[in-house]
Amino acid sequence: MSAQVFSATRKAIADSVPVTVVTVVKGPGVGNKLAVLPDRTVGTLGDPALDAFAVPEARRLLDDERSMTEPFSSESGAVELFFESFPPPPTLLIFGAVHVAQALAMFGKQLGFRVVVTDARAKLLTEERFPTADVLIQGWPDEAIAQTTIDRNTYIAILTHDPKFDEPALLGTLATDARYIGAVGSRKTSADRRVRLTEAGATEEQLARIRGPIGLNIGASTPEEMAISILAEIIALRNGRDAQPLTTATGNIRARV
């Protein structure tokens, strides 16, 4: 691997910049590499026709978060190109620096999320309690929402158990494109909350986006089990799966093969 392509790729990954690395794995120029970044490319596959094919293809596969090998023929011969996509990590935004949030922040980080935890209470929101979090934001929900980029790559868990935090967090995040918005609370809390949110101006369509009670039905009781239940729901949603046992499922086990 050329040093130039390797260091550009490593830097992009470290900075959460999306990058696709294209490698000739068969045919003339085997081993040649090209890194495709949002604003530039680094390296070359050794043939301008190959580079011209690879750059848009790399960006398309990156959008789909896919890696794959594709054949391509040009005047200099037939090759196989391996496209390896490194999409930026998804963000897990946690409202409430509570006990469950500690487990969720830790497991979320291990699963490759960029973890952001926010709470107005400085006593709870400490680096000692959240050693693996990428960002800690001390403030009210509207401040945290203003300071965070929330898009289709963002997953939100609202865990405060306190309507004066939960409801502004829900109203604020329902106005974004977040892929997942889950809120902790019993069935009764969840139902009461819907009534208050409707009074506050939330639409039926917005309320339908809320996953509450949060998580999958695995009987989670401890903070760690609740974190697993929430993350399992997020993973299933991310992959478009129904979270049923594989013993009764058909089709591909993996989302990405």
Binding site: S2, Q4, F6, F82
Partner: peptide, 11 residues
């Protein structure tokens, strides 16, 4: 499976 093995050049 196909596995591509390559040397890594590091700056």
């Amino acid at each position: 499976i196909e596995v591509f093995v390559e040397p890594v050049a590091i700056d």
